[in-house]
């Protein structure tokens, strides 16, 4: 029992989202120091999984442990990168402001953001190659640059587990390369990263573990072992029509 507790352990997680059950009895264990891709077809519940794990949406049942503890006591060790579309990029803040938001917890109530936090934030922006844009208003950034700002915000938190929702969606090649480099750096530093991903071609080269999701976990493990045609077929092809009919019936009754 000498090994340290897993960064993330999900047991029996079920989520009903907007009356429709989207996740069924999810069991997932993510070992430390790995890069995991969560993949699956549209509507498979990938983002829901991340949000439910972070208690952003209510779970119907199930248990989630971070480093062997509930979220409330492990929050400082976990960082979250939401989908880029989830916010209004016209909001009157600069890139640096957004990154410092990752440090609000550390600053605490009733206190202002200080020079030290701004330095940390600038450093995080530099890591994603965005330091020269620190004082730009966020609507003046391109999609890829906005995504890098979000990534910088998570980096500034200096967490041990990173949960990222579609960080590669709609970004340019350069940003994608930059993000991948950072992910690998994080892994070298012993951090754990879970990424909701949609591009099957790059799974092998970017990640070392993969979780195939379609309402249920179809398979999860090292890319070499589980990322094969058979599992992909089970994830993307042939939905179990009976099961989805039944789920539909549940949704309409709720």
């Amino acid at each position: 029992m000498s090994e340290s507790p897993l960064p993330l352990r999900v047991t029996d997680l079920t989520v009903a989202y907007q009356r429709r059950p989207v996740l069924w009895d999810i069991d997932l264990e993510i070992p430390g120091g790995t890069l995991t891709a969560v993949i699956g077809p549209n509507g498979a519940g990938k983002s829901t999984l991340i949000k439910a794990v972070l208690e952003l949406i209510p779970r119907t049942s199930g248990r989630v442990e971070f480093f062997g503890q509930p979220l409330a006591s492990a929050r400082h060790r976990v960082a979250y990168v939401p989908q880029r579309e989830s916010v209004d990029w016209d909001f009157p803040v600069t890139a640096l402001d957004v990154v410092t938001m990752g440090l609000y917890r550390q600053v605490g109530w009733f206190r202002r953001v200080g020079a030290r936090q701004r330095a940390t934030a600038t450093e995080a922006l530099a890591k994603v190659g965005m330091d020269s844009y620190a004082h730009r208003q966020i609507s003046q950034l391109s999609g890829g640059q906005q995504q890098r700002v979000f990534l910088a915000r998570a980096l500034a938190q200096d967490a041990e587990l990173y949960l990222m929702d579609e960080p590669f969606a709609g970004v340019d090649v350069k940003t994608e390369q930059a993000i991948v480099a950072i992910l690998k750096e994080l892994r070298e530093a012993g951090r754990t990263v879970i990424v909701v991903h949609h591009d099957l071609h790059t799974v092998r080269s970017y990640f070392d573990r993969v979780a195939l999701l379609n309402m249920r976990i179809i398979a999860a493990g090292p890319v070499g072992e589980v990322f094969n045609d058979e599992n992909l077929q089970r994830t993307y092809g042939g939905r179990l029509t009976l099961l989805s009919d039944a789920v539909e019936a549940m949704a309409s009754r709720r």
Binding site: L56, S86, V87, V98, Y104
Partner: peptide
Amino acid sequence: AVFYKELKLLCFDQDFAASQGL
């Protein structure tokens, strides 16, 4: 003045605010 940064985060990115335990 007291809740400046919390209100700012709430208005900008509610999900992230919740994930931070606000």
